[in-house]
Simulated scan of single mutants.
Amino acid sequence: MSHLTLGDVVAILEQHYPPATAEEWDAVGLVAGDPEQPVRSIALAVDPTEETAREALELGAGLLLTHHPLYLRGTSSVAATSPKGRVVHQLIRGGCGLYTAHTNADAAIDGVNEALADLIGLQGRRPIAPHEEGGTTGSGRIGELPEPMPLRTFAELVAQVLPATAQGIRVGGDLEAEVRTVALCGGAGDSLLGAVRELGADVYLTADLRHHPASEHLAEGKPYLVDATHWASEWPWLPRAAALLDEAARTRGATLEVHVSTRVTDPWALTVGGSTP
């Protein structure tokens, strides 16, 4: 059995998550690493933090694949005087590359939003904002549940299929109202509130909803809102990306170990004093 190089892995990732499909403001691709170096093990995480970098190095990974960029807005320094700089130094010292697939993985046919849609059994799905008319790639997804259910039950389903976090699942709207048409967007999705209303969704599953946009939206009626945490709504993509890499390596006759981090990198450690209607 042979081994893949970092360049081979990059080529696999960019075939499935083309960088050209990322948003203009995004920063995706290879951040650190030598394309010629062999890669026998890959670690996957949502965030490139000091903790996930350390975890990758402890596993002996030659690449840390993350969803979120390390330097989304660019930088003039990677000095180890900041947490982000320390991540760069950790990885380089340990011989581990860093690659980011962000909004290109969100939009992909087999990406972040597809993984989230699969977990709740969404049928007849299509992008909320397709890259081209009738296209299969683009922002978010909208489709139908196999059977209608009360909003409360739908929220309980979301809580059951997503990894647990301190925040849990927040719900806005009539808890006993029936929902069937579901819109979703992994990560922060309040920019699509208007679009999902125009598409006739009964409920919108996303993350990081802010007080005023959510309150003003609900005052106008449906879709109701189900708010997960940013990390939880995007984590389901990691096992899917890991399986893709494993299969690609096998097809090439190469050995490759893949490890999916379950470390919760949401910033919140505890929720105190919540109430349940």
Rank of each mutant, 00 (worst) to 15 (best):
T5L: 07
E14K: 11
H16P: 00
T21N: 05
D26M: 12
A27C: 15
A27E: 15
G29P: 04
V39S: 01
R40T: 15
L44R: 04
T49L: 10
E50R: 14
L59Y: 04
G60H: 06
G62W: 05
T66I: 07
H68D: 03
L72K: 13
R73M: 15
T75Y: 13
G94Q: 09
G97D: 03
L98G: 03
T100H: 10
T100S: 12
I109W: 10
D110L: 11
D118G: 09
R126N: 09
P130M: 02
P130C: 03
E132P: 00
G134C: 10
G140H: 13
G140F: 07
G140D: 07
E147G: 04
E147K: 08
E156L: 10
A166V: 09
A166F: 05
G168W: 03
V171F: 00
D174K: 09
A177P: 05
V179F: 00
C185G: 02
R197V: 08
E198R: 14
L199I: 08
D202Y: 01
Y204H: 08
D208T: 14
R210G: 11
H212E: 12
H212I: 15
P213I: 15
L218W: 11
K222P: 05
K222E: 04
P223L: 01
Y224D: 04
L225K: 02
W237D: 06
W237M: 13
P239V: 10
L244M: 13
L245C: 05
A249E: 03
L256V: 09
T265L: 05
D266C: 05
D266Y: 06
P267Y: 11
L270D: 09
V272M: 11
